[in-house]
Each structure stands twice: as C-alpha cells, then as structure tokens.
C-alpha cells in the first residue's frame, strides 16, 4: 500500500494530505513559493506512484488561501495526472476547487482549470 503523504504547511507552501487508504486527497493553505518545482516534486512523485494503482473513486480537494500563478500551473500538472487516471484507469474523479466567497478571480481560475484539463471541477465556497 502506498504510504500516506503528509507535508506541513509553511508561510508560503501548502499543507498536503494524501491518504490512499482513507481516500483523502487534500492540498490547502498558501502556495506562493518562488520555486514551485521543488515544493511540488514530492506531490508529483506520490501521484505518479498512485497512478499505477489508483482508487476507483477519488475526490481531490484544493483549498488555497492564496496562490501564485506558477502554482496554478502546477495544479494543472496534478490535474493532468488525475485526468489520465480517469481515462486510462476508469476511476471516478471529482476535483473540488474552493474559492473565497465574493472572489471572482479565484472562482474564474477554477473554471480555467476545468477547461484546461477537461475534468469536472466542483467550485465550492470556502468555509471558515
């Protein structure tokens, strides 16, 4: 069984909690690193391994306080893997993108992602 991935949040990097057994996939907090590559590397590695034997149903949550544009690009990379899992492994994938109530641009970015990877994305208002 793939081990759980837990990464503590920092001022500029998100909290990551991926647990195959409990079927929890959550990225939350701030994602503002200058160097997105190294920050997202363990996430990508984990997902690449997960892709070999994914769960049949996946609800993937992205719940950012703040994020920069390069992080958005990394989210696309994540969703591309999920899209592959959906088409090649026939898993049922739902992505939830949380946005701040009243924040149009964050809502719009959710739509952008949905379009960019052609995955159904639920846009949900963040709750405190």
């Amino acid at each position: 069984m793939l081990e759980r991935l837990y990464i503590e949040a920092t001022e500029t990097t998100p909290r990551v909690f991926f647990d195959k057994e409990e079927s929890k996939f959550i990225i939350s907090g701030r994602s503002l690193p200058e160097d997105t590559e190294s920050v997202y590397e363990p996430i990508m590695d984990w997902l690449n391994e997960f892709e070999q034997d994914p769960n049949p149903e996946i609800e993937f949550e992205i719940n950012f306080d703040y994020y920069n544009s390069t992080s958005l690009k990394k989210v696309v990379d994540i969703l591309v893997i999920l899209k592959r899992i959906e088409t090649e492994k026939n898993s049922k994938v739902v992505v939830v993108w949380y946005y701040e109530d009243g924040d149009e641009s964050s809502y719009e970015n959710g739509e952008d992602l949905c379009y960019a990877v052609d995955l159904p994305i639920k846009l949900k208002v963040r709750e405190e």
Binding site: N68, E100, G102, E104, S105, S106
Partner: peptide
Amino acid sequence: TEGKKNKMSFLMIE
C-alpha cells in the same frame, strides 16, 4: 471586499 483583498495579495506576490 474579500475578493479585493485577495486580488491585492495576489498582485503583490506576483
């Protein structure tokens, strides 16, 4: 608004 605050944060960060 929250939306404007988030926008400003985003713009500052970028």
